[in-house]
Design a protein around this nucleic acid. Sequence first.
DNA 1: TCCGTATTGAACT
DNA 2: AGTTCAATACGGA
Length: 166
Amino acid sequence: MKPRLVEVPIATPAGEFLARYSESGLAELNFPPVGRASPRAAKKEMVPAQIRAWHRLAETALKAIFAGREPKKLPPLDLAGTAFQKSVWNALRKIPTGKTKSYGEIAQAIDRPKAVRAVGGACGANPVPVLVPCHRVLAANKKLGGFSGGLDWKRELLKREGINLP
DNA sequence: TCCGTATTGAACT
DNA sequence: AGTTCAATACGGA
């Protein structure tokens, strides 16, 4: 039986994100729901101290990224996925703030040079956007490609990191 | 096993 | 310069 994730909202200059924590770390992060406050945010008093500590880190890191800076610390991540997906997400985290990579480069980084489309799939399956910077991955010709939360978000995030797109 | 995918690069208009 | 197409790896049904 699946342990219920604790949901806690994160306020950012770009809206209210929704973080979900498992017993071992941050498991999911959602973009702000369109024009609506989070329906069922956990009561903060019921959130375990451990998770509150993680939440503080997550909030700080998120705000740092929105300010275009590299986050100093991240909460532990509890990412559910296949080995392939995890290796992709791990590679994504190595992209420094303000830089971009192509799907092909990610594929090479995980030693599967031809799995470019699969890399795209793994990016789309990324449970923790922004903190795991799936938005810094562009197509080979510097085109935007796609984004789970909507391309507007991708543009916005890149812009805040000082990345200029053609 | 078949289908879709947040790709890519080359071949054609 | 824009469009079509095959190759390709992986995950979900």
